[in-house]
């Protein structure tokens, strides 16, 4: 599948934003006094700006963005519509919590807003993932690894940015020098494990459909495409037949793993051992940047490595055609 930058930005940045909002909600629900009001407001603002920026980026993928409001209407059956509705609703607890923090509201009010925020963040990221997992035509998306992946990577991005923000705003030492680096390292390891399982799954299994079932000609024998309907690319071969990525997939997987798992663990451990405020600020900021870059590469691969079942109609012959076009450019 063609990896459109708008969609990669949308899923990666909004996921990180909701991860940050979820963790903030969880922390405030557990202990409303762990962050000062100003610190909580900074984290809330960063998370909601990330979420809003990601959601706005998705509009650039549309052919008619001025009609985007129409996408809120079909929440009864469409996951994309549900995602839009959930994303808009998630800003209600964001504003409520912001208002409560600003007006120095009672701890019980804060806790209620925080819990609703955490729940809405999870729901929205689930809806984002369901847009992809609900497509039976794409084997790399229609499986059990994708939803946990979106949630875990959202959490990892959120944890890394929370660590950076907490370190920079001078939050509680135990949080900055013990809890958050541990959380980042654990989540990074979990993401790496999940991705390893996911990659093994897409490398060793195939979509059930074949060119024989797609044409119904399997009853006579093996089917081979000898002539495509068109000599140049069309929408389908451009959008669904993106083959360039698979050539460098192995290298890009290593780059993604290094960025979102190896470096964050390597940066979190010294912060745990040496317990220095300056070190924590530097390591946390670098970790946040590495994790974000790693999520971008991971998300790019998520699209670029996915094969659409319609390409069966174009057969192996098409892969040559598009490869030629790619090298010619």
């Amino acid at each position: 599948m063609h990896p459109a930058l708008s969609v990669i930005f949308f899923t990666a940045v909004s996921g990180t934003g909701y991860g940050l909002l979820f963790l903030l909600g969880l922390i405030l629900a557990a202990d409303a006094l762990l962050f000062s009001r100003a610190q909580a407001l900074i984290v809330l603002a960063t998370g909601s700006v990330f979420a809003a920026a990601g959601l706005s980026a998705s509009l650039f993928h549309l052919g008619q963005p001025q009609r985007a409001w129409r996408a809120l209407s079909q929440w009864r059956n469409s996951w994309l519509s549900r995602e839009g509705v959930a994303a808009l609703l998630s800003f209600a607890p964001v504003f409520a919590l912001g208002f409560a923090l600003w007006r120095d509201a009672a701890a019980s009010t804060l806790r209620a807003c925080a819990i609703v925020l955490a729940v809405m963040a999870v729901i929205t990221v689930c809806c984002t993932a369901k847009i992809y997992t609900s497509l039976k035509t794409v084997h790399a998306w229609h499986n059990a690894y994708v939803l946990p992946g979106y949630l875990l990577f959202g959490l990892l991005g959120g944890a890394a940015w929370l660590w950076a923000l907490a370190a920079m705003t001078g939050a509680d030492d135990a949080l900055v020098q013990r809890d958050l680096p541990v959380l980042v390292a654990v989540l990074a390891a979990a993401c790496a494990m999940l991705k390893r399982f996911y990659w093994r799954f897409i490398d060793t299994t195939r979509h059930a459909a074949t060119v024989e079932s797609a044409t119904g000609l399997g009853r006579y024998g093996a089917v081979r495409s000898v002539e495509a309907p068109h000599t140049e690319e069309n929408y389908l071969t451009r959008e669904m037949g993106f083959a360039l990525a698979r050539k460098h997939a192995a290298t890009l997987r290593v780059i993604a793993l290094v960025l979102f798992a190896v470096l964050p663990v390597a940066l979190a451990l010294p912060a745990l051992i040496f317990r220095s405020t300056t070190l924590a600020i530097i390591h946390a900021s670098v970790t946040a940047l590495c994790v974000t870059a790693g999520i971008f590469v991971e998300r790019w691969l998520f699209f670029a490595e996915a094969k659409h079942v319609v390409m069966l109609y174009y057969g192996s012959e098409h892969t040559r055609m598009s490869a030629n076009l790619v090298y010619r450019r």
Binding site: L217, Y220, V223, R224, S225, V226, G315
Partner: peptide, 9 residues
């Protein structure tokens, strides 16, 4: 769109 296939019998 009209495709053309060859089927090995």
């Amino acid at each position: 769109r009209v495709h053309t296939y060859e089927v090995e019998t």
